[in-house]
Write a protein that binds this DNA or RNA. Structure first.
Lengths: 226, 226
DNA sequence: GAGTTTTATATTGTATACAATTTGTATACA
DNA sequence: TGTATACAAATTGTATACAATATAAAACTC
């Protein structure tokens, strides 16, 4: 397992919440686990800190970045603007090879949904949106976008309930959006792309809203039975 | 000189173009210069890479991040949106202690302009806008904003001509904008704030436009004398 | 028994030595 | 003369040992 692979593995474990927000990342333990010395491991942790996955406190170690209420609020304030901008730029700047790669990811995504393989779904979705960031090809937006994607993955996992039939519906909507996005990107149609991004975003927003404000239990049993 | 001081010093040297875009950052040379070993120096370089000051290529060392035409274009595409968003959030979220600090920076800025101390002007301006980023208090926008500020400083220095009388005018306009911004932030008036940000931005845009498209020399000497 | 100081342990930070990779140069050959 | 290969130098990457700092525990004072 080389350095990049360890980097990716750690990032994946953070994204999938296997390493929970706030969890301490002990250098000695991790370096032993991955069979490398502390020096390169520290560089990996600092790299992840640059991406926003990890918070480092001087002389007190590294922690998986937290997900406080404030962070959640900031996420919902910021994501629409950045996502729209990235979508617009992706439609303008995508290279043919990237569009091809996107189609491949989309087919894997489709298969994962059909197979109800939650982990694969999350991963393919992540790849799809990360690639969109590459297409946009803007070094100033990329760091913010990547940070949003990291927390987007974590938030989605927090609120996703695999047994709820509404979830399957949502996933097929998302899949459909992705198909339309690929078409818009190929056509270089940035206006349609932004509309799709907004629509897609509302899926995520509604998921959390539904969690915070779920269908209430009947508080008047007599009425519920009538 | 502790680690943070070395970090700041390197960043400052990059911002002031003392270390030019694309310049190689030799680990051995730098570690000797700052009297620390390579291990912490490497961490500093990776930290700066996370901020976007430095590009690191595997097995081929660190370089001051470049300023290609594409980067310049991306800068002008992206900055208005992010600056406006940061301005709006700063007006909404600024804490009294931060407003107080901002006033102090502004007075130093005023003094630097009066004294025509270019380096101090650049530094105070940088501090002013960095503090605005702190006020906005949004972890998703901050990485993009900081990256924009780094290149903004470098671009401004590239196109600034201290001997041009127009430059002094511009600086007084900027100073005036800053005064008005502080008032808007204190009043929590985010609408006015965004208008000011746009106006302030046009100063920077015009500076570069003027450089790219300066007053042409007379090409018809007869006509010029008539 | 509560609070403070001291001591021990654990963890992070730094220096140095060594390994791996890349780059430059010289030489052989077409 | 141009290209390819082999070797040498320089530079980056990693491991390990040691130093500094923070946390936990124990002893002490009041």
């Amino acid at each position: 397992m080389d350095k990049q692979a360890i980097y990716d593995d750690l990032k994946k474990r953070i994204l999938t919440l296997e390493l929970e927000p706030g969890a301490a990342l002990d250098e000695a333990r991790l370096s032993e686990h991955y069979r490398i010395s502390r020096t390169p491991l520290r560089e990996i942790l600092r790299g992840l800190a640059g991406e926003g996955c990890v918070d480092i406190v001087n002389n007190r170690g590294a922690y998986v970045s937290s997900m406080s209420h404030k962070v959640l609020r900031d996420f919902f304030v910021t994501a629409p603007m950045i996502y729209a901008a990235i979508g617009r730029l992706a439609a303008q700047n995508a290279k043919p090879s990237q569009i091809h790669e996107m189609r491949e990811i989309q087919e894997k995504f489709r298969a994962a949904i059909a197979a109800q393989a939650t982990a694969d779904m999350v991963y393919c979705n992540q790849c799809f949106h990360a690639l969109m960031g590459e297409m946009a090809d803007n070094p100033y937006l990329k760091p913010s976008y990547d940070r949003l994607l990291i927390d987007h993955a974590r938030i989605s996992q927090t609120f996703y309930r695999p047994r709820d039939p509404q979830m399957a519906e949502r996933m097929y909507s998302a899949l459909d959006h992705h198909d339309q996005m690929i078409a818009a990107i190929e056509a270089g149609d940035s206006k349609t792309m932004v509309d799709l991004i907004v629509e897609h975003w509302e899926l995520s927003r509604d998921l959390v809203e539904y969690f915070v404000k779920p269908d209430p239990l009947a508080y008047d049993m007599a009425a519920a039975n009538s």
